[in-house]
Write a protein that binds this DNA or RNA. Structure first.
Lengths: 351, 351
DNA sequence: CCGGCAGTGGGTAACGTTTTTCAAATGTGT
DNA sequence: ACACATTTGAAAAACGTTACCCACTGCCGG
């Protein structure tokens, strides 16, 4: 009969006693190390199973390894991050590593607390997804534990990076809209003041790509950036600002799907229809974008692949911490759906 | 200048040497224990700051505590779980406990691996959100580490539970639809074969509540349950099955928002409009349900509150493992939106 | 027949922290 | 000035695991 007693943990000593061998031998069996005969090995395995022994990770950690990979996610609600995580765990499945994650909640102090906590827990490797911490902080972490940074453009010799080519992604969106006949294309951007982060964060690169693409299409004069935030409310606010103007742009490039959602809501409330009155494109190709009734044109970042690459790089770096840093850049693809269409009144070609 | 050297961790010994005291004294300062004068305390604090010392959790764990709370989430994509997590971390903020989570991916083996991993890492407490493991497994865990189970109806003397009253929630939906004039109300259920889980899982309780409510409204003959799964595809499939019939019900109660989404997609593809042709209600009041263009009638479970309660119970249990198990049941509320309306052809009242 | 070698198993010392025990120093009341 | 309580700080022993080293057994070749 099972009892309610607090139950002391079974240790390697219990197994050793039960199998009539030394703890050293049990350890050898556990690690598949040489120096144990087949007979002894079998006896120890049997004892392990019978006693239900599981190695205590804290003690293992003191000897160097915890078989744990920590993943910092900025926000658990964004489906893109879920894709990355899925790719990661998929790749790590069967390697003996356990994935645990923590949320940075898009706050620099909270994010730092999470990453520090992972270091303090002796994790063998860290994956930081779209971190907002300073580059110096990232390097401080990477110096202590093998680290891969995902979805951020800053580089370092101390950690690997996997990111999407946001510049190319922005080009895809602009080209798609121009191809439909749009000229006045606005961008909803995430306001960023910190000069260091400015260059490294995806939103900044997307904004750069947008400006560059507009210029290349001869639309330099039409560049129109509205700065809010990469949130649902930010999209709502951005749409409100556009609606307050005398004339609406014919198309809007929202820097993230979540922003596009906020816009769609504001536009619907204002009685405008999409794409008849205005085209809207997002970024990330989240599940909700693909959802039929929404059907948002978006840019797909292949989050699952990104996660897979991150896992691979991290395993390499754990195996040999001296490997030079790799920087992988994936090419995004455009998924055209029903929120983008030719403008109602087509502008006459220039000249 | 910072170097690329691997950087050895600063230990309590380094701090002790720097502050010219024993490690014991440093430990006392760290834990705010008595037995250190104000002067020494200040000196140690200064050394800690100067060296950037952080206690190594693995070593602490060997002495009993890791200041870590583990949260098992079945699925990172479901916003309801994100709400629960937010409530949890909110409540735990400032307590010195760090929250780390792992995903069970709705697989019994993967879930077991995650929970075992948390135990192996010496976590101080566990929150298991909507676990699918057997009750025996849950009790085995709870015997080793303080545990709170969220969103599941089975009870035990070994762990606390926090759950929503799914029976009442189903009543709310049926009452709402009946109030609008519906009689033929179908339920999309999650098929469950395991007899033990059958009674404990939320979907089963919702189905029970639905049947009970239908009977109380004199609609026993109209009870109509379609069994698929609680996924987007499950909703799509359920809708397809209904569409294959000669006559559609006038309203459908999808057991979860994600199921409702799949249904909406299938109905839209079939050229039917909601709520004109058929009313649809969900469950969970996820973010996407509230999203304007979707505007799904749903049942709100107050995930944030649930998480808060779970955190509180867990802290109590950690403080005193002997406390008798609490079982909290929260009352859900209905959020009526635009996917439910009176049926097109109102049935005449009975008799 | 002896020296070396491969293979097997065990003893022991870490790893970084907290807890327990104890001695010294300080203060307090006659 | 003396006994005695109290405070302060240190030494040492755990916690569970692994890595390093050593001892022992057969066995092979010279």
């Amino acid at each position: 009969m099972t009892s309610d007693a607090p139950a002391r943990r079974v240790t390697i000593v219990d197994v050793a006693r039960h199998a009539q061998v030394s703890t050293t031998t049990v350890s050898k069996v556990l690690r598949n190390a040489t120096g144990a005969s087949a007979a002894v090995r079998a006896r120890v395995q049997h004892s392990i199973a019978e006693l239900g022994y599981r190695p205590y990770v804290g003690a293992r950690g003191m000897r160097g390894r915890t078989f744990t990979i920590g993943v910092m996610l900025p926000d658990i609600r964004n489906p893109f991050f879920a894709d990355v995580l899925a790719g990661l765990t998929e790749h790590l499945h069967g390697t003996g590593y356990q994935v645990l994650h923590g949320t940075g909640r898009n706050g620099e102090d909270i994010e730092a607390r999470v990453t520090e906590a992972m270091v303090d827990r002796g994790m063998d490797g860290l994956v930081l997804v779209a971190p907002i911490s300073s580059g110096a902080h990232l390097e401080r972490i990477a110096r202590v534990v093998p680290t891969v940074v995902v979805g951020r453009h800053g580089r370092s010799t101390l950690y690997d990076t996997v990111a999407d080519d946001d510049h190319a992604g922005a080009h895809l969106v602009v080209a798609h809209l121009v191809g439909l006949g749009h000229r006045h294309i606005a961008l909803i951007d995430h306001r960023e003041t910190d000069p260091v982060r400015l260059a490294e964060m995806p939103n900044a690169v997307r904004a750069d790509g947008y400006r560059d693409a507009m210029r290349r299409h001869g639309l330099a004069d039409e560049i129109d950036v509205v700065s809010t935030t990469y949130t649902h409310d930010g999209g709502y606010l951005g749409a409100s600002q556009l609606l307050a103007r005398p004339a609406l742009p014919t198309a809007v490039f929202a820097g993230a799907d979540i922003v596009a959602m906020g816009m769609l809501q504001a536009l619907a409330e204002a009685g405008l229809s999409v794409p008849a009155d205005v085209s809207v494109a997002g970024y990330d190709n989240t599940t909700i974008a693909a959802f039929g009734p929404v059907s948002l044109t978006s840019v797909d970042q292949a989050g699952q692949q990104i996660g897979g690459h991150a896992a691979r790089l991290l395993l390499d770096r754990i195996a040999d911490r001296g490997t030079p840093a790799s920087h992988i850049k994936l090419t995004p693809t455009l998924v055209a759906r029903r929120t983008t269409a030719p403008p109602r009144v087509s502008h006459p070609p220039i000249r």
